[in-house]
């Protein structure tokens, strides 16, 4: 038997020379050490988590879940009928269509560009209310020189008033403003 075995082994050797063709990724065995170290560290961690539950928690849990399941399943599911749903929306759809037709009629039959006429009072009101938001460019567009009298444009200040005004001003504020 040994002789026959040797004969067969010689034949296999000649054919394949003890190579099985299996290969492994580069550095596989180096990486293996690290992988195993991680696993060992994991295994050395305590398995108990130290969280506590109330004593009878697991005894009552089953019944509690079942009661909820039963309550949920006993409720009749709400059935929405497509026909009913469509009928419900018909008045809204009709109203929307009518509005659309009327709006289209006015829109397509009106070539006038809407104009608004403002009187001076309106402008003055607007100026008083929105003073802070008006830029000088806007003012220039709104008013011409004819809109003002000479008196309105001239500055008349007597010396006493000017002196009094200057006395009220804090000099440090004035310096800051000038800077």
């Amino acid at each position: 038997m040994d002789k026959e075995t040797k004969h067969s082994i010689d034949f296999i050797n000649k054919k394949i020379n003890k190579k099985n063709g299996f290969i492994i990724p580069d550095n596989y065995f180096d990486k293996l050490d690290d992988d195993l170290q991680v696993i060992i560290n994991q295994n050395s961690l305590p398995e108990e988590h130290n969280f506590e539950v109330p004593k009878t928690y697991f005894d009552t849990l089953e019944n509690e879940i079942l009661s909820k399941v039963e309550t949920t399943s006993s409720r009749k599911p709400k059935v929405l009928l497509l026909r009913k749903k469509i009928i419900q929306y018909i008045p809204n759809a009709v109203a929307a269509s009518v509005m659309l037709i009327i709006a289209s009629y006015f829109y397509f039959n009106s070539n006038d560009v809407t104009t608004h006429n403002f009187n001076t009072t309106d402008i003055e009101d607007w100026f008083d209310e929105d003073y802070n938001t008006i830029s000088s460019d806007e003012l220039a567009i709104l008013f011409t020189a004819d809109d003002f009298t000479e008196d309105e444009l001239s500055v008349k200040v007597n010396n006493d008033n000017l002196e009094e005004y200057l006395n009220t001003i804090d000099s440090s504020n004035l310096i800051e403003e000038l800077q």
Partner: peptide, 18 residues
Amino acid sequence: NLNSDLWFSGDEIQYILQ
């Protein structure tokens, strides 16, 4: 499936051996 295995580089005879 060995012939399509990334980690098998054997030739025909090694495949036959397996």
